[in-house]
């Protein structure tokens, strides 16, 4: 317990969805819902390991997705996630003036940026001395561990939504995501203006995103 901690009451408008898988931290010690977590933060002293575990169960999945979006690399995202919850363990009790989720995002953001800078420095040094071929930062083949980030029900809804897309929109999505072509290349190959390709992609993603949101918001 840290005697210097000065916890205050959690603001009433704090809300964070409990979208975690629920398979971690559902034991008898830790809190199981966001309200429980809020109650923990209003207490004094550092968070116990079981509290952090519960927090991980509730928010870890979303934080990992956020880190994947930032880092585009599963290994780095895992490392950043670990560092983030290490910070939660050390300083989580100080998160009182803002929402816990926002605080988590902020901490994970800084961890990701630090990793990104470190990775960039390493790549620069390796390129300079040519010790080995540097893997492009964006390359992240889909692995088994990544598959766990995606829920089966999401995939089912997504397949359904993809089948309902107009052919020209689906074509652009497929070329961008599956063939990993840039929008410029897609526009060139389809002999379309770049703006048209971007519009088709945007419209398609809007529909797909709506489907995924419906999946996640449904009980």
């Amino acid at each position: 317990m840290s005697p210097t901690a000065t916890p205050g009451p959690e603001p009433a408008d704090h809300s964070f969805g409990d979208k975690g898988s629920g398979d971690h931290g559902t034991g008898d010690k830790g809190p199981e819902s966001a309200d429980d977590l809020r109650g923990f933060l209003s207490g004094e002293g550092r968070l116990s390991p079981s509290d952090v575990q519960a927090l991980y169960a509730a928010q870890g999945h979303e934080v990992l997705l956020f880190l994947m979006g930032l880092l585009r690399n599963r290994e780095l995202a895992d490392e950043a996630l670990q560092n983030t919850f290490q910070r939660v363990l050390e300083q989580g009790h100080t998160a009182r003036s803002e929402s816990l989720k926002g605080w988590l995002f902020k901490v994970s953001y800084h961890e990701a940026m630090a990793l990104k800078r470190r990775q960039a420095t390493q790549d620069r040094v390796l390129r300079k001395y040519g010790d080995r071929e540097v893997r492009p930062f964006d390359s992240h083949p889909v692995s088994e561990s990544e598959l766990r980030l995606v829920r089966d029900e999401d995939l089912a809804r997504l397949r359904e939504a993809l089948n309902q897309l107009p052919a020209e929109q689906r074509q652009v999505v497929e070329r961008r995501i599956d063939r990993e072509q840039t929008f410029a290349v897609i526009a060139q190959e389809l002999k379309l203006p770049l703006g048209t390709v971007l519009t088709r992609m945007r419209l398609a993603l809007e529909k797909l995103r709506r489907q995924l949101r419906d999946t996640n918001e449904s009980p």
Binding site: L65, M68, G69, V142, E146, L147, L149, V150, D154, L155, L158, V173, I177, D178, L205, L208, R209, L212
Partner: peptide, 8 residues
């Protein structure tokens, strides 16, 4: 979430 789902 959307991009990872589309990739898989």
């Amino acid at each position: 979430r959307l991009v990872l789902s589309l990739q898989t």
